[in-house]
Simulated scan of single mutants.
Amino acid sequence: MSSKLALPSSQNSQLYVGLLSSVAASCMFAFLPWYIHQFPLEPNSGNWLAAQRIVWSCLLMLIGLGLMKQLPLIVSQLVNVKAWPRLMVASILVGLQFWLFIWAPANGQTLPVALGYFSLPLVLVLVGRFVYQERLSRVQWVAVCVAGLGVAYAYLMADGLSWVVLLVAFGYPLYFMLRRKYPLPSHIAFTVDNLLLLPLAIVYLLLNDGVSVEQSQIVSFYNHSPWLYYFGLGIAGTVPMLLFLLASNHLPLSLFGLMGYLEPVLVFSVGWLLGERLSAEQWPTYILIVLALLLLAIDGSRRGFKRKASVSLN
Rank of each mutant, 00 (worst) to 15 (best):
F268T: 08
I92Y: 04
L59D: 11
L71F: 09
F221W: 13
V270A: 07
K181P: 00
L195G: 14
I74K: 09
V55M: 05
N44S: 10
T110G: 01
A51F: 06
L120F: 07
F39D: 00
P85K: 09
E134A: 10
G66I: 02
L49E: 05
P199N: 13
L195K: 09
A158S: 15
L19A: 11
L32Y: 03
N107W: 06
W227T: 13
F130Y: 14
G271S: 13
M68E: 08
S310P: 06
S9C: 12
P33R: 11
P240D: 04
V270L: 09
A309P: 01
A280P: 01
L59W: 06
G234W: 01
P240N: 01
V113D: 01
S57H: 07
N47S: 14
M1L: 12
L136M: 15
P284C: 11
I202C: 07
S220C: 02
A297D: 02
L296Y: 08
A114H: 02
L62I: 00
P40W: 07
F130C: 05
Q217Y: 13
W163I: 10
M61Q: 12
L59M: 11
Y35P: 07
G237C: 13
S76M: 01
A309T: 05
W163G: 01
S91D: 07
W283M: 12
M61F: 14
P185D: 10
G66A: 09
A154G: 13
P252T: 05
P85C: 13
L93G: 02
L5H: 13
L207Y: 07
L73R: 07
A50M: 02
P185K: 07
L166K: 08
S119E: 00
K308D: 02
I36P: 02
P40F: 09
S254M: 10
N107L: 07
V113L: 09
S45T: 15
A6K: 13
V142K: 09
C145R: 00
P185L: 06
E281W: 04
A50T: 02
T238R: 12
V89N: 03
S162A: 14
L295F: 06
F170H: 10
L293T: 11
L7I: 14
